[in-house]
Amino acid sequence: MPLALSAVLAASAAGTSSDSSAFLRQYLTVAIFAAAAVVMVGAMLGLGRLLRPSRPQEQKSIAYESGVDPVGQGWSQSQVRYYVFALLFVMFDVEAVFIFPWATRLEAMGTYGLVEMAIFIGILVLGLVYAWRKGVLRWV
């Protein structure tokens, strides 16, 4: 992949010793950004602590239920209506992970790759059609 190669070369020209450390360094930046989000949230809440009042009252910490006293517990049992959709989602999401590498290399693979993927997607569409005909895609 010439693009990836040139990216790695550019990164190693920037003073990194080897390709793998340049690669890992890219993801170190990702980790630093996640940490920056934590620091920002901490800093803002810390600043807020200096400025905001704190007058705890029992009534303030009751769960909000449109102004009337809450009935029962907040953690009530609720019907997750879309668990069948969730199963379908897992199937299709994994499929998407398989399609991405194929998509980057399609030019090299040509007709062979295209036929291969047509079969792959065809099987998945069959699955979707089956689910559809079985009435799974109806909200119950």
Binding site: A63, Y64, E65, G74, W75, R81, F85, F89
Partner: peptide, 27 residues
Amino acid sequence: ASANKYSLLGALRAAGQLIAYELPLVL
């Protein structure tokens, strides 16, 4: 975590929505 019925329903709806629309986005 809110222990509130509105919150719980909202969160479950959000999860259902993500399940449905993540796929068109990715595809």
